[in-house]
């Protein structure tokens, strides 16, 4: 038996139950490996499926445990982790869901998966002391308009065509399993939603952004001063509420520094 590619054969047989275990592996009395090799197959697929489920609990709730397990088996074989850091596993899951035919009738799943990924990234992001709200309140309006902001590493922004915040909330904790939010014309959210993920302490929280909020944050994240970000937000939503958006950012610990332009 060649030594050079033993582990390649081993890995192939672990991932594909149709491939027989590599030669040279045996039970102690010399019988073929049989079920003993299945221990590895089981450990790999089950542990990675469990890791995927731990990372996407709301997706699991939306599709049901049995369906999720079957789908996870397909995903993990096609997208093995590139790193042993399991908290990073599943980065390709939103794209997988977008292409996975059996969930085509749940078109919001990829964005829910993006939201769950963002929450996980936020949880592990670097700490940064938040800007005190008084710092902003103390500034004269002209200074504030020309100021730029630095944002917390734990902040994430998600824009979706779907009511992802409502769906996430209805399924994250305690809500009835499988609820896809209210899309029945009763006045409950049914359209696009923008979500701010902030981490005021150690626990990330998704917050629904008011109209124009995401445009404002996107522009400010790109390094634009407040006035230019405000323009972008008002172009998108005439009734943009700057105070409400700044309030969300401050309460969520999303702003870490204010960069004030030197006066000439």
């Amino acid at each position: 038996m060649s030594h050079a590619h033993d582990q390649a054969r081993f890995a192939t047989a672990i991932l594909d139950p149709e491939v027989p275990p590599p030669a040279g592996l045996a039970a102690p009395d010399g019988r073929p490996a049989g079920k003993r090799f299945d221990v590895y197959r089981n450990n790999v697929i089950v542990s990675l499926s469990e890791a995927l489920k731990a990372g996407f609990p709301v997706i699991c709730r939306l599709v049901g445990d049995e369906f999720f397990q079957a789908m996870a088996g397909i995903y993990v074989r096609a997208h093995l982790p590139k790193s042993p850091i399991m908290s990073q596993f599943g980065g390709e899951f939103p794209g997988f869901l977008a292409e996975f035919e059996p969930v085509a009738q749940l078109p919001y799943l990829p964005d829910i998966a993006r939201l769950e990924l963002a929450l996980r990234q936020s949880y592990h992001a670097a700490d940064a002391p938040p800007l005190a709200p008084e710092t902003l309140q103390a500034l004269p309006p002209e200074t504030l308009l020309s100021a730029r902001f630095a944002f917390a590493p734990a902040m994430r922004l998600l824009r979706s065509e779907w009511p992802v915040h409502a769906i996430w909330q209805a399924n994250a904790q305690g809500g009835p399993a499988g609820s896809a939010g209210q899309q029945d014309g009763t006045g409950k959210p049914s359209g696009p939603e923008d979500v701010l993920i902030c981490r005021p302490g150690f626990d990330p929280e998704p917050r629904l952004l008011p109209a124009g909020g995401a445009a404002f944050i996107t522009a400010a994240l790109a390094g634009n001063p407040l006035e230019a970000a405000l323009d972008k937000a008002t172009q998108e939503a005439g009734a943009f509420d700057l105070a409400a958006t700044l309030g969300l950012l401050l309460a969520g610990g999303c702003l870490t520094r204010i960069i004030i332009k030197e006066t000439q």
């Binding site: 582990q7 672990i14 590895y40 450990n43 093995l80 982790p81 590139k82 042993p84």
Partner: peptide, 8 residues
């Protein structure tokens, strides 16, 4: 194996 981590 070849950058694929099997978690076992």
């Amino acid at each position: 194996h070849e950058s694929a981590y099997l978690n076992d």
